[in-house]
Design a protein around this nucleic acid. Structure first.
Ligand SMILES: [Mn+2]
Ligand SMILES: [Mn+2]
Length: 596
DNA sequence: GCGCGC
DNA sequence: GCGCGC
C-alpha cells in the first residue's frame, strides 16, 4: 500500500544540542526502525517553531494515521567523526533510531573545503580590532534570538567571538572567511559592513516594525518569541498597549514593571554585598544551611545580570525518602521578612525565582534572584551546573553523552549501553571529580564563560602555574581594586572545605556535621583544610583580609571567598596532554573571558 | 543539554 | 507547551 509522505514533527527540547549542520534544511534523514526503513527531508516551516521532517518513502504502520510527534533522541554530535547514529527519533509507543544519510557528494565537498583557521591557536588580539563588524553582527544575533532562531543566533556569536579575537583589522569578507565560524553569508555581510558601515539585513530588520516589536517585547521578562508574536498579532505597538492586555500573566506584569531595572547590570561590588546578605540570612535561620552564589558571579564576572544561589541543607539529600520540605520556603520567607525579597515570580519546593532589593539606600535597583535547593550530597554537581555558563553546560553534557554518560545537577552516571538506563551515580566530591570523570582537564570557573562575546582584555603574562589562563579580563576602567579581586577569585577554587557538602554518610543522615574530605583528595589538600573550621569561611572582598579571615572562628561574610582549598593547578599543568586534549575536544578553547 | 514551575 | 535558569 502506497502512502503519501508523512510529516514528522521533531521537537528538540531537552535533548542533546543538534548541530546546525544536522538541522540544515533539506538534510536527508534516514530512519531505521521497527517500522520499514524510511527517510525524509528536514525543513523548517515559516511561522512555526518546530522542525519538520517530511518522509520521502511511504511507510506502512499502525501509527501512520496518527500525527507522529517525534523527539530527537540523544545523538552523537557531528564533530564525532566516528559518527555512529547522529539522529534518533521517538514516536509514542514506538521507539526507533534513525540515521542521517551523508550523501557521497557532501562528503566529497566536505573534504575539499579548506581547513579553517582557528584564531585561538595563535596569538589573539588583546582588544577587539573589529568592533565595527562585531557590533553589527551582535544586533543580527539578537534579532535571530528574538525570532527564536537559536542556531543562527549561535552562529553569529561564534563568528563574533572569532572576529573579536582576530589579531588584525579585517579588510575583506574573503579574509574573514578563512576563519572558523565565518562562512559565505557572514563574509558577504562583512564586505557590506566594511564598505557601508551596515548591511542590508540589518537595515531591513531595523525598518521592519514587526522585528522591532519582537525585539522590544522579548526584552520583557516572561515574554518569549511565542508570546511576543501573539501580542503583535493583537496589534500592539508599544509596551503601553501591552500593559493594558488582560491576558498578561502575573509574571509578565512583573516583567513590565521591572523592565528598566532588570536591564541594569549588577556591579561586582553589589554582588558581594548581596552575597553577604544572603549568606548571613541563612546562618540566622539554621547554621547547617550552605549558601553559595553561583552564576556569572562565581565565574568572576565584573558584572552580573542576576543572583543565582545554590542552597543546600543536610536534611535534604538525594534519596527517595528525603524530600525538600520547607527548607527553601523557610529561607525565602526569611529574606522576605527582611523585605529583601519583594516580589515573587515562581516558587516551588526546589526552585525559587523572585525580585529583591537592598534597602540601605533609596537608589538601590531591583534585582532578579534565583534560588535552587539541591540535595546536600549532590552539592558539587549543583555548584557545577549553576555556575555555567549555559554553553559550557551544554558542552559538558554533550561530552557526557559522547561517553555514554548522563550529566545533570543531580547526577553524573554511566548509562546502560543497550537500554540507555541511567546507572548508579559516580562519586562527586568536588568539581575536579566531574572533569576527571569526563576525561577532561580541570577548568576554572573564570574560564567557563563560553557563550558571551569577549569584550576587553589586557595582554597576559603567562605563568607556568596556570597554563589555562591565556588571558585575564581587563580591568573595567573604573576600579583598580576590582581587578585583583577578580583575578584572585578566578584562580580561587572553592573545593573540599573541611565540612563541605557533597558527601552523605551515616552520621550525616542523622544531621551531624560533615566528615573530612575523601581520602583521594587528602594529598592535595592545603593548609586551609587542616584548620578544620566549622563552616566554609570567607574573606571579604579585599585581598588584604584573606589571612585575617582564615582565622578560626571568624564568620563567613560571603560565599565567594570561602576558605576552601584551591584545586591544585599544578596537577593540571603536569598533565599538559590532558589539557591539550581538552582544548581539542571543545574546538573553542577557553580564553579567559569573565562575563555575565 | 537538561530541569523547574506555571 | 512556554519561558526561564545555568
Ligand atoms: Mn545569572
Ligand atoms: Mn539566574
Amino acid at each position: 500500500m502506497i502512502r503519501q509522505p508523512q510529516q514528522l514533527v521533531l521537537c528538540f527540547k531537552q535533548q542533546q544540542q543538534l548541530q546546525s549542520s544536522t538541522l540544515r534544511q533539506s538534510s536527508t534523514l534516514n530512519f531505521k526502525s521497527s517500522l520499514p526503513s524510511v527517510n525524509g527531508t528536514c525543513f523548517k516551516q515559516r511561522n512555526q517553531h518546530k522542525n519538520f521532517v517530511s518522509l520521502n518513502t511511504p511507510i506502512e504502520s499502525p501509527t501512520y494515521n496518527y500525527p507522529i510527534t517525534a523527539l530527537a533522541l540523544p545523538c552523537k554530535s557531528t564533530r564525532n567523526s566516528r559518527g555512529k547514529s547522529p539522529f534518533g527519533i521517538y514516536v509514542p509507543s514506538q521507539h526507533f533510531t534513525a540515521q542521517r544519510v551523508k550523501s557521497p557528494g557532501s562528503m566529497a565537498t566536505k573534504k575539499k573545503t579548506k581547513e579553517k583557521i582557528d584564531v585561538t591557536k595563535s596569538e589573539v588580539s588583546p582588544v577587539n580590532l573589529n568592533e565595527e563588524i562585531t557590533k553589527v553582527l551582535e544586533v543580527l544575533a539578537r534579532n535571530e534570538k528574538s525570532e527564536d532562531n537559536v542556531y543562527k543566533e549561535r552562529a553569529y556569536y561564534n563568528a563574533i567571538r572569532t572576529i573579536s579575537l582576530y589579531p588584525q583589522k579585517i579588510t575583506s569578507g574573503e579574509e574573514a572567511k578563512q576563519l572558523r565560524g565565518i562562512g559565505e553569508s557572514i563574509s558577504r555581510k562583512i564586505d557590506e559592513i566594511l564598505s557601508t558601515g551596515t548591511c542590508e539585513k540589518l537595515t531591513e530588520s531595523s525598518s521592519n516594525p514587526t522585528t522591532q516589536l519582537m525585539n522590544l517585547f522579548t526584552r520583557i521578562y516572561g515574554i518569549g518569541p511565542v508570546a511576543a508574536r501573539k501580542f503583535i498579532e493583537k496589534g500592539y505597538q508599544s509596551i503601553d498597549d501591552l500593559s493594558k492586555d488582560p491576558d498578561l500573566t502575573p509574571i509578565q506584569r512583573l516583567g513590565i514593571k521591572y523592565l528598566n531595572d532588570f536591564e541594569i547590570p549588577i556591579p561586582r561590588e553589589e554582588m558581594i554585598e548581596l552575597d553577604k546578605l544572603v549568606t548571613i540570612t541563612a546562618r540566622e535561620i539554621d547554621e547547617r544551611y550552605t549558601v553559595t552564589v553561583c552564576g556569572s558571579y562565581r565565574r568572576g564576572a565584573p558584572e552580573s545580570s542576576d543572583i543565582d544561589i545554590v542552597l543546600s541543607h543536610p536534611d535534604y539529600i538525594s534519596s527517595l525518602e528525603s524530600d525538600p520540605g520547607e527548607l527553601l520556603k523557610k529561607y525565602v520567607d526569611c529574606l522576605s521578612e527582611k523585605e529583601f525579597i519583594i516580589d515573587h515570580i515562581s516558587s516551588g519546593a526546589v526552585k525559587y525565582m523572585g525580585i529583591c532589593r537592598l534597602q540601605d539606600n533609596e537608589s538601590r535597583i531591583h534585582r532578579r534572584i534565583d534560588i535552587r535547593l539541591l540535595p546536600y550530597d549532590r552539592y558539587w554537581l549543583g555548584i557545577f551546573t549553576l555556575t555555567g555558563d549555559d554553553e559550557f553546560n551544554k558542552k559538558m553534557r554533550s561530552r557526557a553523552m559522547d561517553l555514554n554518560m548522563h550529566l545533570s545537577e543531580y547526577i553524573l552516571a554511566r548509562k546502560d549501553k543497550s537500554t540507555g538506563e541511567i546507572r548508579e551515580p559516580i562519586e562527586v566530591q568536588n568539581e575536579a571529580d566531574i572533569f576527571r570523570s569526563l576525561g577532561l582537564s580541570y577548568i576554572e570557573p573564570k574560564d567557563r564563560s563560553w557563550r558571551m562575546v569577549r569584550k576587553k582584555y589586557k595582554s597576559d603574562q603567562k605563568t607556568e602555574k596556570n597554563v589555562n589562563a591565556a588571558q585575564q579580563p581587563e580591568s573595567s576602567s573604573d576600579k583598580i581594586g576590582k581587578v585583583n579581586e577578580n583575578q584572585r577569585g578566578g584562580s580561587q577554587q572553592p573545593e573540599a572545605s573541611s565540612d563541605k557538602p557533597g558527601k552523605v554518610n551515616e552520621k550525616q543522615r542523622e544531621g551531624s556535621q560533615q566528615p573530612e574530605a575523601s581520602s583521594d583528595k587528602i594529598g592535595k589538600v592545603n593548609e586551609n583544610q587542616r584548620e578544620g573550621s566549622q563552616k566554609p569561611e570567607s574573606s571579604s572582598d579585599k585581598i588584604g583580609k584573606v589571612n585575617e579571615n582564615k582565622r578560626e572562628g571568624s564568620q563567613p561574610v560571603n560565599s565567594y571567598h570561602r576558605d576552601w582549598i584551591k584545586e591544585e593547578i599544578k596537577s593540571q599543568s603536569s598533565s599538559n596532554r590532558l589539557l591539550e586534549a581538552t582544548k581539542r575536544i571543545f574546538k573553542w578553547p577557553w580564553t579567559g573571558i569573565s562575563s555575565r
